[in-house]
C-alpha cells in the first residue's frame, strides 16, 4: 500500500475525532440558543409584574389571585406603528402600579 494512502487513512481518524468534538459543541450551542431565546430580559420584568400584582391584590383581600402569565404585549397604534413598552413595563397605565419600582423612574412611552 502506498504511504500517502496510509497517511490519509491515519488522517481520517483525526477527522473522526473532529466530527465527534464539533458535533457535541454544535449540540451544546443549539441547546444554549434555545435557552437564550426563551429567557429574554422582558420575561423577568413580567414575572415581577405578576408577583407585584398578586401582592397588591392579596393586600386588598382578594381571594382568587389572578395569574397574568407571560404574554407578548404589543399595542398596535396604527398599521405601521406598534407600542412595545408594556412588554417590559407592564402595568404602566395602571394607577395601582404608580409607585412600583419596575415602573417608577421610567418615562411613559
Amino acid at each position: 500500500m502506498n504511504s500517502d494512502i496510509q497517511a490519509e487513512n491515519h488522517a481520517l481518524r483525526k477527522w473522526h475525532w473532529a466530527f465527534a468534538i464539533v458535533g457535541v459543541v454544535a449540540a451544546v450551542l443549539f441547546t444554549l440558543s434555545y435557552w437564550m431565546d426563551y429567557d429574554r430580559e422582558w420575561r423577568k420584568y413580567q414575572r415581577n409584574y405578576a408577583s407585584e400584582l398578586r401582592a397588591i391584590l392579596s393586600g386588598k383581600g382578594v381571594r382568587e389571585l389572578p395569574n397574568p402569565g407571560i404574554v407578548y404585549v404589543q399595542t398596535i397604534v396604527s398599521p405601521t406603528r406598534v407600542d412595545r413598552c408594556q412588554m417590559c413595563h407592564r402595568g404602566i397605565d395602571d394607577p395601582r402600579f404608580a409607585k412600583s419600582p419596575h415602573i417608577s423612574g421610567k418615562s411613559r412611552c
Binding site: 477527522w15 473532529a18 466530527f19 464539533v22
Partner: peptide, 9 residues
Amino acid sequence: FRLLVVFVA
C-alpha cells in the same frame, strides 16, 4: 466525511 465535518464546524 471531511465536508460533513467542515459543514458542522
